[in-house]
């Protein structure tokens, strides 16, 4: 059961399904305490940024 759960976590991570959750975790850890930090991005706004950034460089090959 534990193993299945871990597999599911990996699949979510691989596909980017949990990208927003990871962003929130990163934000809470690194930025939330800083005085100049605003609220974190919304799910939709984060996803937009994430996707646009992902396709800037060479991502696919022959």
């Amino acid at each position: 059961m534990q193993w299945l759960k871990q597999c599911w976590e990996r699949i979510r991570q691989l596909s980017g399904d949990d990208a927003y959750d990871r962003y929130l975790a990163h934000y809470a850890e690194q930025h939330a305490d800083l005085p100049e930090a605003g609220p974190p991005l919304s799910r939709a706004a984060f996803f937009r940024q994430w996707q646009d950034q992902k396709w800037k460089g060479i991502k696919r090959c022959c």
Partner: peptide, 13 residues
Amino acid sequence: NNGRDFMPTNRWV
């Protein structure tokens, strides 16, 4: 680590 393109990730991923 910036939570986006730089991010330590599980080796299988």
